[in-house]
Simulated assay, not measured.
Amino acid sequence: MRALYVTHPQVQIDANVPVPLWGLSQDGRLRAEAFAARCVVPDGAMIFSSSETKAMQLATILAEPIGATVVSTHTMGENDRSATGFLPPTQFEEMADRFFARPEVSAQGWERAIDAQARIVAAVQAALETVPAGVPAVFCGHGAVGTLLKCHVGRRAIARSEDQSRHAHRGGGNCFAFDLDAMKLGGEWAAMEDFAPGWFR
């Protein structure tokens, strides 16, 4: 079954707020609204989302024009980084490099990449089992677990080189089409602005 994975665009960073509660920034919201207005998400699509605020806000923006209901679950959430909490950009990038470089090892208490991958793949598979044949499925989520899903579907080793920031918009708001049953990617990460309608056909 062909599906679409979309990461949330730019967020409002606040070191005093838990990361899962961060919302979209003004720029992120404008990008999401423009994406929704281009009708990339077809009528009748089922929309699934991580329960984190930024992903839910993206999912709601995509669902409203087509009257869809958003189904959310914490199992689609980003890799658990609560052990370190908020990190300044430079430190975060160093930790992300470690996360991808050694998938079977926890980086300072972060959820291991292999565990996060197993979790997101299982969550997406469970969601797809509820989607009727011929109905488009759209997943709203995050960069790291989205990359892990992409690596799984593409039968690729977990690597930072597969990350959205290496292929498309560094601020997030990227997507790729995939078929989990067929284990086939529809392409590499593409920015919202560059992803064309008609992906489900």
Score class of each variant (00 low, 15 high):
S51Y: 02
S51W: 04
E52K: 04
T53G: 00
K54N: 02
A55C: 02
M56R: 10
Q57I: 02
L58G: 01
L58Y: 01
I61N: 01
L62I: 01
L62S: 04
E64D: 12
E64N: 06
P65D: 11
P65K: 10
I66S: 01
G67K: 09
A68I: 02
T69V: 14
T69S: 14
T73F: 02
H74M: 09
T75L: 05
G77A: 15
D80E: 03
R81F: 05
S82H: 03
G85M: 11
L87E: 13
L87Q: 15
P89S: 13
E94H: 14
M95Q: 15
M95G: 10
A96G: 07
A96R: 12
D97Q: 15
F99I: 01
F99Q: 04
F100L: 10
R102M: 11
P103C: 04
P103M: 04
E104M: 07
E104H: 12
S106C: 10
G109V: 12
W110H: 13
W110Y: 14
R112S: 09
A113I: 11
A116Y: 07
A116P: 08
I120S: 03
V121I: 10
A123L: 08
A123P: 09
A126R: 12
E129F: 06
E129V: 08
E129G: 15
T130V: 09
V131K: 04
P132M: 06
P132E: 03
A133Q: 13
G134H: 12
P136R: 09
G141K: 05
G143W: 02
A144S: 04
V145M: 07
L149P: 07
K150W: 13
